[in-house]
C-alpha cells in the first residue's frame, strides 16, 4: 500500500513550471524500444488531459491548473509497453496529491443563529453551538476554523464565551438577567487557519433570547389597605389590589395569586385575579353582620402562579399585607326569627284560647321588636287573631267540624309585622295542626272529646306530635315547638312509662357494677398472671428494665464518637473545588480571558484578575495565574490533577500544532509537585503570558527557578551557566538528570551529581496511582523530583527532525516536558516543534509522550508503552546561533 503520495502539485497554481513532475523508466529500455503510457483520472478519464506523458522519455507533465476541492488526488497508472503493445512491466501507480491552498473561506450554515437561555443559568452553561464549514482540505490548517466573539449587544459586560474550536457558546457567568436585558446579539467570526492573520474569515450573528425564570417576588402596590363595607350586602368589587412583579408579563412567573393568611374565617371574602392586569378584586361573597363584627382585619399574602426559581427560593418570605375592613351598620328593622311557628289545636280549645305568641325580633338590637304592629295576613277560615301590640295569638272561636273539613286538618296562615316608621313589613308563618281525633264526626267527636279530656296519654301523644312537627320546621322551631309542647303538657301530670322506668333501673345497675368490673380488669398485665392490678414498686424505676436487660448502656465514649462530619469553616473553598477538565481561551473585546470550565461560577472580575495577576506561585496560598482554582484543588487533594494536565497539554499542543504565523514565545506552564507517601502537598503554578502588551513586572517576584523558566519562555536572555560537561549533548537521558547545584523543589528524592555546574533543574516525583487518575509517569531520568515546563511557540519554526546543540555555550537549562495521554484522535503534528529561544542559552528539552493512542507524525516512532516502562520520545538541544545538527533520537 502506498502510504504517501509520490508527487504533489498545488491547486490553483500553474504547476507547469515544475514539469516534469515525475518520470518513469523501465530497465527494458536498455535493449528495446519502450513506450511509456499513462491512464486514469485526469488523463483518459474526466477531467481529461491534466497529465500527459512523453512516451519516449517517460516524463510526466501537468498541463492545467487543478482544484483540490474537485479532485483531491490523482492516481496515474504507468505502463511500459513494447512495440507490440505488450506490457513489459507490472503497472505502477503514481499518486499525485493536490496540495491545498486556502482558497475557501469558512461558511456558516446560517447567517443568524437563534438561541435561548434561561436567566440565572450557571456559568458555562451551553447556549448554542454554531456551525461553519470550510471546503479546504480537512484536518488541515486551511480548514481549521477558530471562532471568536467580535461584538456583543448590549455591550455592557460580556456574558458569553465561545469555544474556539467547537463553537459552543456558553454563559460566562450566572448573571444573566432577563429583567435587565432580554436579548443579546453576538457577532461571531470564524477564521480558518485556526484564526491566523492569513486566514479567511466569515461572520455570523447570534441572537440569544434570555428566557424568564421566576426570580422576582411579587408584591402589592400598597403596603396596606383600608376599606369599609355595609353589613348584609354582597359586593363584587370591594377593592382592587394591583400586584407588581418584574418577571415576564402574562407568564406564570408574573401572574400573582393572592391568598388570605388570616381574617377570613367566616369565608365572607373572596379574591378574583385578573390575569391580564394582575389586579386582584376583593369580593364580599357572604354578608357581614355589623352587630356581630364591627371591624375585622384581613391579612393577605401574594405569590406567583409558578414556583419560585431556586435562586430566590430562600429569599421568599411570606409577607402579610393588612386590609382593614370596617363594617357599616344598616338599619335592618324587624324580622320573624324563626320565620314560622307551629301550634296544635284540639276541639277542646274554645273561643279566645291563647295559643301562644309570635313576636318579631329587632335585628338592630337583637331584642323583641317594640316598634311594629302585628296584623293577620292570610288567615284561612278566620281561625285565629293576633294582638296588634303583643303578638299573642288567640283562637277566635272553637274550631268546628266544618272548619276542620275545610282546612283538612291543617292551617297555614301569615302574620305581618309592620314598622310604620321604617315602612317595612316582615311576614311570619303560623302553622296549626288540628288534632284529627277531635273532629271525626259528631258522635265520635263526643267520645273523643271525653277521652281527650280524660286520657293523659293522649296529651302525651299530642306533645310528641308537636315535637315532631317542630323538628320538621327547623332547629329553632324545634326549640319553640318544644316550648309550646311543654306549655301544653304542663297542664297534665308528668309520669314515666314502663320503658322509662326500666331504663332508669338499668342505669343504676350499670353504675353499681363499675367498681366490680374494675377489680377484675387486667389493665395490661401479663396474661396468665392473674387479673389484678400490679403494685408499683417503691423504687422510682418501677417496671422499667435496666440497661443490662435491654442491651449495653451506651458508654460516654461511644456517644462522643457519634458526631456529624466536620465542615470546614470556609465553605467557599469547597465550592471552588471544581474540575478543570476543559481549558479554553476566548479573546473578548481585546481582552484575553480564560475559562476553566467545569461548570464553576467565575465572575468576569475574577477572569480579568486571573489574567492580570498571574504571578508568584506560592504553595497553596497565592493565586497563580489562570490556574488559581486548580491550584487550590490540587493543594487540597495533595496531588496533581492529571485530567487537567492532560487537558492542558493536549489542548496547547493542538492549538499550536499547525500554526505558523508569527507569535511571541510567551506561554509557559510551570509545575512543581512533590508527591508520594509522607511528602508534603505539591503545587501547581502557571504563567500564561498572552498578548503583546505584556507587563512582566511580576516576574521580579518569582522565585529563581521560575523566573528562569519564565524568561526562557519569553525568549529573554538568561544568565549563562558554566559548561557542565564536554560530552554535551547527552547520548542518553541520564546525562541530563542529576546536576550539581540543582535546587530541587520540596523534599523529594533528588540525586545530585557533582559533575555538573549550576543548572536549573525543575523536578517532579511520581504520581501515586489512584482510580480515575492517570498512571504514574515512569521517569527514565531516575531522579526523584522533576518539574514540568511546557513551552510552545510558533516563532521560528524548527522542523521536528532538527536536533540543535552547541556545547560551546556553558549555560544550560534542562526543561522537561511531558505530554500525558493525548486525546484520542488528536493530531499531534507539530507539537514537538521547539521555540526559537532568541539569543538564549542552551536548552535541553525532553519531551515524552505516554500512551498516545492517536495519530502521530510518521517521523516519530513511539515504542509500545506496554512493553517498556519508560518512553522517551524526543530530546533536543537547541542553540539558535549554531548550525542545525543532530537528529531525532528516540530512547526506548
Amino acid at each position: 500500500e502506498w502510504i504517501k503520495f509520490a508527487a504533489a502539485c498545488r491547486e490553483g497554481e500553474d504547476n507547469s513550471k515544475r514539469n516534469p513532475i515525475a518520470k518513469i523508466h523501465s530497465d527494458c529500455a536498455a535493449n528495446q524500444q519502450v513506450t511509456y503510457r499513462i491512464s486514469g483520472v485526469g488523463i483518459d478519464q474526466p477531467p481529461y488531459g491534466i497529465f500527459v506523458i512523453n512516451q519516449k522519455t517517460g516524463e510526466i507533465n501537468i498541463t492545467t491548473i487543478v482544484d483540490r476541492e474537485v479532485t483531491p488526488f490523482f492516481i496515474i497508472y504507468c505502463r511500459a509497453v513494447n512495440s507490440l503493445g505488450q506490457d513489459l512491466e507490472r503497472i505502477l501507480e503514481l499518486r499525485v496529491r493536490v496540495l491545498d491552498i486556502n482558497d475557501n473561506p469558512p461558511v456558516f450554515s446560517m447567517s443568524t443563529f437563534l438561541g435561548q437561555i434561561e436567566e440565572n443559568s450557571n456559568a458555562n452553561t451551553l447556549v448554542m453551538i454554531l456551525n461553519a464549514t470550510d471546503a479546504d482540505e480537512p484536518n488541515n490548517l486551511n480548514s481549521k476554523i477558530a471562532f471568536k466573539i467580535l461584538r456583543q449587544e448590549p455591550s455592557a459586560s460580556p456574558m458569553f464565551i465561545i469555544n474556539r474550536y467547537t463553537a459552543e457558546v456558553r454563559t460566562m457567568n450566572n448573571f444573566l438577567d432577563r429583567e435587565q436585558y432580554g436579548q443579546y446579539s453576538l457577532v461571531v467570526r470564524g477564521s480558518d487557519r485556526d484564526g491566523g492573520a492569513d486566514g479567511m474569515a466569515a461572520e455570523c450573528e447570534c441572537s440569544i433570547k434570555i428566557l424568564d425564570v421566576n426570580d422576582n417576588i411579587p408584591y402589592m402596590e400598597q403596603p396596606s389597605y383600608s376599606i369599609s363595607v355595609e353589613e348584609n350586602a354582597l359586593n363584587s368589587n370591594l377593592l382592587q389590589i394591583r400586584i407588581i412583579d418584574l418577571d415576564e408579563e402574562f407568564s406564570a412567573n408574573w401572574m400573582a395569586v393572592i391568598f388570605f393568611i388570616s381574617g377570613n374565617e367566616g369565608n365572607w371574602f373572596d379574591i378574583e385575579m385578573n390575569e391580564r392586569t394582575n389586579v386582584g378584586t376583593l369580593k364580599v361573597i357572604k354578608p357581614l353582620d355589623y352587630e356581630a363584627m364591627k371591624n375585622l382585619q384581613l391579612s393577605l399574602g401574594v405569590r406567583n402562579k409558578a414556583e419560585f426559581h431556586q435562586s430566590i427560593m430562600s429569599q421568599y418570605k411570606l409577607r402579610a399585607t393588612a386590609v382593614s375592613v370596617t363594617v357599616l351598620n344598616v338599619v335592618e328593622g324587624s324580622v320573624f326569627r324563626p320565620g314560622s311557628k307551629t301550634f296544635v289545636v284540639t276541639s277542646e280549645m274554645g273561643q279566645n284560647y291563647q295559643l301562644g305568641d309570635f313576636i318579631a325580633t329587632d335585628l338592630d338590637t337583637g331584642l323583641p321588636s317594640t316598634t311594629v304592629r302585628y296584623v293577620m295576613g292570610s288567615n284561612p277560615a278566620g281561625l285565629i287573631a293576633i294582638g296588634s301590640k303583643t303578638g299573642i295569638i288567640n283562637l277566635r272561636n272553637k274550631v268546628t267540624v266544618q272548619q276542620y273539613k275545610i282546612l283538612r286538618g291543617k292551617y297555614q296562615g301569615t302574620i305581618l309585622a309592620i314598622d310604620d316608621a321604617l315602612q317595612r313589613t316582615c311576614t311570619g308563618t303560623i302553622i296549626i295542626k288540628l288534632e284529627s281525633s277531635s273532629w271525626k264526626d259528631d258522635d265520635s267527636s263526643n267520645k273523643n272529646n271525653t277521652s281527650t279530656s280524660t286520657n293523659g296519654l293522649t296529651s302525651s301523644d299530642v306533645t310528641t306530635d308537636t315535637y315532631k312537627n317542630s323538628v320538621s320546621a327547623g332547629t329553632n322551631n324545634a326549640h319553640v315547638g318544644h316550648t309550646t309542647a311543654f306549655q301544653i303538657t304542663s297542664k297534665n301530670n308528668v309520669h314515666f312509662g314502663p320503658a322509662g322506668i326500666g331504663l332508669l333501673i338499668m342505669g343504676f345497675l350499670v353504675l353499681g357494677l363499675v367498681p366490680f368490673l374494675l377489680m377484675f380488669c387486667d389493665c395490661g398485665g401479663v396474661p396468665g398472671c392473674g387479673a389484678r392490678f400490679k403494685p408499683v414498686p417503691e423504687c422510682l424505676d418501677g417496671a422499667i428494665h435496666s440497661w443490662t436487660v435491654e442491651g449495653a448502656q451506651p458508654k460516654l465514649a461511644d456517644l462522643t464518637n457519634i458526631c456529624a462530619p466536620q465542615i470546614p469553616p470556609n465553605n467557599a473553598d469547597i465550592i471552588e473545588c471544581i474540575d478543570n477538565s476543559g481549558v479554553y481561551t476566548n479573546e473578548y473585546r481585546g481582552r484575553k480571558m480564560q475559562d476553566l470550565g467545569g461548570g464553576e461560577r467565575t465572575t468576569a472580575l475574577e477572569l480579568v484578575d486571573a489574567v492580570k495577576t498571574s504571578g508568584t506561585p506560592k504553595i497553596c496560598q497565592e493565586n497563580s495565574g489562570t490556574l488559581r482554582r486548580s491550584s487550590i484543588r490540587e493543594c487540597r487533594e495533595g496531588g496533581l490533577n492529571m485530567n487537567f494536565m492532560e487537558s492542558y497539554f493536549c489542548q496547547k499542543a493542538y492549538a499550536y500544532a499547525d500554526e505558523d504565523e508569527a507569535r511571541p514565545s510567551n506561554d509557559c506552564l510551570l509545575i512543581y509537585d512533590i508527591e508520594g507517601v509522607g511528602s508534603p502537598a505539591g503545587s501547581v503554578g502557571c504563567c500564561s503570558f498572552i498578548g503583546e502588551d505584556l507587563d512582566d513586572s511580576y516576574l521580579d517576584t518569582l522565585g529563581t527557578k521560575f523566573k528562569k523558566l519564565a524568561d526562557i519562555s519569553l525568549g529573554k536572555e538568561v544568565e549563562p551557566y558554566p559548561d557542565p560537561d564536554p560530552s554535551w549533548p547527552p547520548d542518553s537521558t541520564e546525562l541530563i538528570c542529576p546536576l550539581q547545584g540543582t535546587e530541587p523543589i520540596g523534599s523529594g528524592h533528588s540525586h545530585i551529581s557533582p559533575h555538573f555546574g549550576t543548572t536549573t533543574i525543575i523536578s517532579e516525583s511520581n504520581y501515586p496511582s489512584e482510580p480515575g487518575v492517570q498512571h504514574p509517569i515512569p521517569d527514565p531520568l531516575g531522579y526523584g523530583n522533576v518539574t514540568l515546563t511546557e513551552s510552545y511557540t510558533t516563532l521560528g519554526t524548527l522542523k521536528p527532525s532538527v536536533h540543535v546543540h552547541d556545547n560551546r555555550h556553558a549555560s544550560n537549562v534542562v526543561v522537561t516536558e511531558r505530554v500525558v495521554g493525548p486525546i484520542s484522535g488528536a493530531n499531534l503534528h507539530g507539537m514537538l516543534e521547539m521555540p526559537d529561544l532568541r539569543d538564549g542559552s542552551n536548552v535541553i528539552v525532553t519531551e515524552r509522550v505516554i500512551t498516545p493512542g492517536s495519530s502521530l507524525p510518521s517521523t516519530l516512532t513511539i515504542p509500545d508503552p506496554r512493553e517498556s516502562s519508560n518512553v522517551v520520545v524526543t530530546e533536543r538541544v537547541i542553540q539558535p546561533t549554531s548550525g542545525l545538527v543532530g537528529n531525532l533520537s528516540v530512547h526506548p
Binding site: A6, A7, A22, S26, A80, L92, L94
Partner: peptide
C-alpha cells in the same frame, strides 16, 4: 525494474533532484 522518479521541489539552489518512489508497507 520499473521505477517512478518524482521531482524534489525543496531544493534551494534550483537544481532538479529526483527521488525514486518506492512502495512501502503501512
Amino acid at each position: 525494474e520499473f521505477q517512478i522518479q518524482v521531482r524534489d521541489y525543496n531544493t534551494k539552489n534550483g537544481t532538479i533532484k529526483w527521488h525514486s518512489v518506492r512502495r512501502q508497507k503501512r
